[in-house]
Design a protein around this nucleic acid. Sequence first.
DNA 1: GCAAAAGTGTTTTCTTTACACCCATGC
DNA 2: GCATGGGTGTAAAGAAAACACTTTTGC
Lengths: 249, 249
Amino acid sequence: MNNYKDYERPSVAADIVTFGIDSERAVNKRELDSKMLKILLIKRGEEPFKGQYSLPGGFLRPTETIEEAALRELKEETGIKTATLIPLKTYSAPDRDPRGWIISCAFAALIPTIETYTDAESDAESSFWVSIEMGTDEINIANGEIIITIENEKAYCDKLAFDHAQIIYDAYLKLKDEVVNHDIIFDLLPEYFTIADLKIPYEMITGKKEAAANFRRKISKKIEETDMFDNGGAMHRPSKLYKRSSEQE
Amino acid sequence: MNNYKDYERPSVAADIVTFGIDSERAVNKRELDSKMLKILLIKRGEEPFKGQYSLPGGFLRPTETIEEAALRELKEETGIKTATLIPLKTYSAPDRDPRGWIISCAFAALIPTIETYTDAESDAESSFWVSIEMGTDEINIANGEIIITIENEKAYCDKLAFDHAQIIYDAYLKLKDEVVNHDIIFDLLPEYFTIADLKIPYEMITGKKEAAANFRRKISKKIEETDMFDNGGAMHRPSKLYKRSSEQE
DNA sequence: GCAAAAGTGTTTTCTTTACACCCATGC
DNA sequence: GCATGGGTGTAAAGAAAACACTTTTGC
């Protein structure tokens, strides 16, 4: 083997698909609060892909790990200070970036309910939350403004820069897999939550409706009752607040 | 954002934890064939970590993806031509390699039964298969010659170079997770196999014994009968050979 | 009272677990 | 015959699904 310095080196970036649940208080007291799964995008102000959307991200520095780089960029570009990071794959097609040889370590980042994180704390003008919904062969982003088409596991979208359509698709699949197999759903919720807070995002992400009584039983081992209640003045019985069960898995 | 060329660039390597099932025909006809989960290691002939063990791997080239780099290095260093690659995380601690700033995209690679791949086809003198067994707080490699100690998800071993002890530990956990949740066990088997070929590795990897009758039922939906039988002259009823079910999941 | 969602109970179905038993083979 | 692992049957226990019903709230 030759000396490692003989080899050309790529630039290494971290790109982040940030997921959050947006809870908008219902205007009409007869309705449930509307909950949406959202991701963070950036509108690109410069070339390449000027005017298109991209994921927050940036380059790895010699003094940090790639996870630290991801969190640093997330903070710089969106104001978010803490998040659960889930590593996705590394995107390394030689032609994925027209600027040159740049590979990207992609992450999914999960933050507890969005409202507590945006506006007040955000120092980023350019990043914004958009809704994301998974269909059978497409992903609908920002209520139809951005549509990712899926064909044979490949994702296409001409409004998203680089291979970010593919990264978003892969991130969504990973999120779903983690929700089904590893209780990661709790990382999208605040410390205290109602059963509905848990059930609605769960159904959106997995794409499957659950009967209320059955869902309650299924997750009962993973949560603990508190003696608090939540009722946004809605016209129905108040919901008990739960927290994540303290026993380890 | 500045021009990307302003940033210093790391060397990027791919390191591979190659898993395979080694089936040694039993000497005594009264015994079952012994099956072991094994991984591929390399004895380092040069500094750093001269004399210690490391994973096969090498540097990413500008014309290939990191997956292609992993498969190329696997072929060059071990003679293995095809494998199922599972991406692990990227290891990027700034001080992980004493030679300089080198980050590593790690992969698990799964190959069908070892014997068909080694000796005859291998053009690598330096790589070799060693057994791997997971205990509660340690990993036993090569029948006790290499012991990885686990403490709080951190892996330590002074016989393994770089952070490769940690990579092997993470790879094992990932393999286990994939076997439990995603039927990846079939990628460790040849096209035709007996129920025992399936059950023994499954139990070794998951660390849980399954009652034979129940295991058979559990996996019955995922396999198809053939009209072939396998009996290495053993003193018991011959085993029917099965293949993976052709229906997609 | 009424609508809406929270929450409980019951029955049915399916899957998982445990265990008893028969089958085919080489010696 | 006998030991060994391959393979089947069956019953109990547990989890998932379906559905009917009660509770608490704001108007």
